[in-house]
Each structure stands twice: as C-alpha cells, then as structure tokens.
Design a protein around this nucleic acid. Sequence first.
RNA 1: GUUCCUGUAGCUCAACUGGAUAGAGCAGCGGAUUUCUAAUCCGCAGGCUGUGGGUUCGAGUCCCACCGGGAACGCCA
Length: 621
Amino acid sequence: MDTLKHHHVFRTLVARLAAATHLPPEQVEAQLRPPPKADMGDYAFPCFELAKAEKKAPPEVAKALAERLIRDPEISQVTRRIEAAGPFLNIQAEPGVLCAAILHQIVEAKEKFGHGTEGAGRTIVIDYSAPNFAKPFHVGHLMSTILGASLVRIFRALGYRVEGVNHLGDWGTQCGFQFLAWRRADPKEREEQLAKRGLEYLVELYVSINAPGKALNDLRRLLTDKEIAADPSRLKEVEAKIEKLKPEVDAIDNEARALFKKLEDGDAELKALWQRMRDTTLQVLQKSYDRLGIVFESDSGEAFYTPMLPKLIEDLKKRGILVQDEGCWVIPMSEPGAKKKALPVIVVKSDGTTKYETRDLAAAIYRKEHYEFAQNIYVVDMRQKQHFDNLFKALEKCGYGWAKDCHHVWFGLMQGKDGDQVQVMATRGGSMIPLKDLLDRMVGIVRMIVREKNPELKPEQQEIVAEAVGVGAIVFWVQSRRRTSDIVFDWKLATSPDGDTGPYVQYTHARACSILRKHEGEVSPFADLKVLEAPAEVAVCKHLDRFGEVIRQAAKDYEPSLIASWLIETARAFNDFYNQHQVLKADTGAQRDARLVLVDATRRVLAEGLRLIGVSAPQEM
RNA sequence: GUUCCUGUAGCUCAACUGGAUAGAGCAGCGGAUUUCUAAUCCGCAGGCUGUGGGUUCGAGUCCCACCGGGAACGCCA
C-alpha cells in the first residue's frame, strides 16, 4: 500500500534494528521517528514496547540495545553516534552519508520526488467549490475551492486518477427567487443592467427579493433577545411588525416556489432565462478560477442530475425504500432499536418537487456508474455534516455498499467581524467580501513591495510577480491552518506578507533560484555529496527527506495544511543555511558543487510543495 | 432542549495521532549587511494547554462533568 521509498541509511537502520530486536521491520519503521531536538540525533527509537515484551525497564533495554548496535558493522557505516537516553535510543547518522543518500533520491526523481504510485488504477472524485447560481464568488468560497483543488493535486501526486467536479448550485427554489426578482424588474432596464453588469446585477436582484425575508428573520431573532423579551411594549411592537411583514414574505415564497416548479416541469421560457443566468455566473467564476490556477474536469451541477430523478424516484418507490410521510416521499432514518427518532430524508416534497438531497443521491449514483470511484469526496463546510451523514446512510439503505467510500471533508466557517459581533459571511446578509477584492488588495500590497525591493525588474515582470505572490499569499493563508477550525476574517492577518506566509516560502525559493542563475552552469551530477556535513546542511536535507511522508499524511487526513507547515519549516532551514554558508564562494570547489546540488534540490522540492497547495513559485521576486 | 465542532503565549496558529524540557509567526525589546536578494538570520521576553475529576509507566492529545465560543436540528441549499 505505502510505496514510500526510503533512502539506504534509513533502510539499513530499520533492517538492523529489526534484526537486533526481533520485531517486524514495519513496526520498527513506524516507531522510528525524529527526536524532539536536532542535537539529540536524527532518529529516535522508543523502547517501551520492547521493554514490556522482555519484562524489563525501558532504560535498561535502550542501553543494552545501544551497546549491541554499536558493534554492528553495517550500522557503524552509516552512523556517527548511538546512545541510550532514558527509555529512548538516539541515533545520529553519519552526516555526509545521510545528506548524500537523501539528495541522490531527489536528483534521481526530480519533480517526482515524494510522489507515489499507490493510487495507480484507482479513481477519486472530488466535489468542491460548488458556488451557487447567480450569487457572487466571495471569500466564504475560498475554503472549499482552495482545499478541494489542493486535494486534487495531492492525490494525483500519489498516482490516482482524480476527477474534480464543480457541483454548481444551479437548481432549486433559489432559482425561483431569482426569476421572481427578474420578473418584477422593468423589462427594458433589466436587459440593460444584465448586459452591463452581469453577475453583479443578478446578485443585486437576489438580495432585493430576499430583503423582506431577511427583515422578518431579523425581527424573529429580536423575540429571543433578553432585553426586548423583558419589555412587553417593545415585544408587542416587534410582534406587530412581524404580523405586518409576514403576508408579503409568504407571497414571495409561494411565488418563487411556484416558479421553480414551473421550471422543473419544463417551462421553455424559464429554461432559457435559467441558461442565461447560469452562463453569466460561470463566465464570472472562470476569472477567479483562472487566477487561482484551477481547472475542473466537470461543472455538472445540480441541474445536470434532474433528468435522472424520475426514474430514481420510481425505482425507490417500487423497492419500498421511499415511503409517504405527511405528503412527502421520504427515506426513513430511524434505526429500529434507537431511543430517539431520527428525522427522515425528504426525497420528494409535498408539492411534488425534488430537494437537493434527491439530486445528491442521483449524483452519487451517477458518479459511481460513470467513474467507478474508489473514493467519492465532498469538500463542503461543516454546516452540512448532518446532510452528508444522512446522504451516505440513505445510500446504504438503497443497498449501495460503496456508500462507505463516500467522505465528507468538512471545514470550519469563514466568519466576518463586525465590531465585536462575529458572524458567518453570507450572500443574503450582504456582509461578504468579493474574492476579487481580496485578491486585488493583496496584489496591490505586494506590488508596492516588489517595486521597493526589486526596482531593476521590468515593470511587466513586476506585475507578474505581484500577481503570483499576491494570490499565493491568500491561498497560503487559507491553507496554513487545519481545516477544522473556523476562520474569523481579518484584513490584517489575511494580507500580511511577513512571517509564516506564502511570500516567505516563495522568497526562499526565489533565493535558491537566484544562486543557480548566478552560477551560470550545470549543477554537477558528479559532486561528492558527502562533504555536506555542517548542521545547517544536514537540517535542510532532513527536511527535504520528509516530503513524501508529508504528502501521504496530507492525503490520509485530507489536510493540505500539513504541507504548508512543512514548507515553512523547510524554508526556515534553508534560510538558516543561506545565512551561515556561502555557496558560490565556498571554501573549496567540492563544497561549492555539493552545495549547488543541495540548492537545486531545495528549489525543486519547495516549488513542488507550493504547487500541491496551489501556490506558484516565481524564480525571482 | 438534542447532536456536532472548538478552547494552547497579548494576537493568529503548530505539536508527527498517548512519548523526552508544549513550539512557530505577529506585536515588543536587543543584535547581524565590505556577502549568492535583509521579503532574511540570531538573541531576549512571553504558558497551571478553559475548570475539575478519571484512565496509566506517561495526557495538550483518550473518558466523564462543568464553563465560554461556533454550528446544525425535515418540505432552503
């Protein structure tokens, strides 16, 4: 399964350690880890389990093991120091040998270093981004979009065939709201506005038609406010306002629902309008995807699956999986023995229309038939956890064993800060920041820095760098936290160019490229890499060595942030090396040649790591 | 009310899935440039890991309770 290839120093240690302890090599490999501090050594082996098996104290076992290994001729060729430190066995590899072993792997594998073939012949479907029809692309969409696109790249690096699907929210009652707003607008003006402002105008329509509904919600929220609840006169006032507003909101809701039903029933005029609105949306989205370097294999949204619904529903009814409940057709979710009744999944609403659950069922089945996936992944925020739990359970109830291959990769919410109030960014509330604004602002900040730091760069080159570093900074910011925590959007934090950021890693990469550029020649393939013995050199190599392991962990946990933090650590190690040692003006030619290999390897691996998380790597900045 | 996330330095986050003295960045203070890019590097300071119990050789990590923050709770998506 795990085809991670280790260099010969590591392999030797595992083999000899396994022989000395009589443990299976896999177990030794799993336990062998770097100690907390670099001066303790390169590898540490905890002796707790071994001690348990031998019924001895761990420090005693560690000591005996150390004495044994020191006398092992194979081990002594690759190690400099082996010692017991309490219950741990610490091993320092022979520095030059270790550096050479690691760098040889990179020189050989080039861009493929760290990649794997464990996914060969298997397909993964990743459903991500999925913005809604006729709504703006804002910073709230960043998480799914960036996380999903990154997972696509990571799984491809491990040999999987990956199908990225942009499951557009282009069907449902919301379309009815959009149509209603369109109908209420002046026919001449709406054409002009759509031609001139495109998506922006559609968003305006959507916000305006939802304004009464939002006002009603706000009023209802006031009812639970302690201060108001305690004051009968104000409470009455609020209740009166609600009563007054309710008929209007109900009317809008009913009309919108009716319009959506008409669309779903096949009304040609609405279908044409729908197509125009969809095209307008996609056209604008494409600009953002281009800037982020994202390409989807499919943009089949919810609408794509609607033709499959009647047959699916008929089939489920026939098999007795769908049952009637309060006018709806549902899949019951309650387990026979459970004490609490779980709510059923509604597949057909009482007015005969379908829900997004219906389309998600059809989509999953279609993907299984069409792609034969090994995994079907949904990159959607945590609010929909229950929805996906239900969806997967429903698939199971439909008799699909592959339901277990479906995963909801959830993430925390992007929240806006309004004074002390923290709330989720939403289109309805109008509190969201368009993605374009955020990217433009960051690019602007970077543009100023480029002009200041690198004035000899040609203006058009400066602009390319500003775009790459600006967009990269935002992408890195999103990727630099674990996906499970919420983000409170803060302009200052999101757009900072200093510290543990994308620009830091990009700058490090550019520095490495700069050395190679100044070298003006080939990096010698015959360099004697064993001369790389300084602690800073060894530290860089050890970081590079971890790349493959980090990619695999990121794939296993669906957590690209692991690559982001590894990039920071690796860049830091390289900058430390850069500060301490000269490359082009090294003391000896042998040292220079070996360090050039190190610089070249670092440059390669950093660029690849950045690519995997969706950040570009300019050669100068 | 039920369920699910979350709580670590002033702020934003890590901690290799139960291992050694809990680490980075920002902000603050002090240093390093006759040098391949100073968008860098080094040092100082900053902590009862929300609180209380439990599990064991060992807990930020697992279990229970409580407190604070966020979210979901069928005919929206």
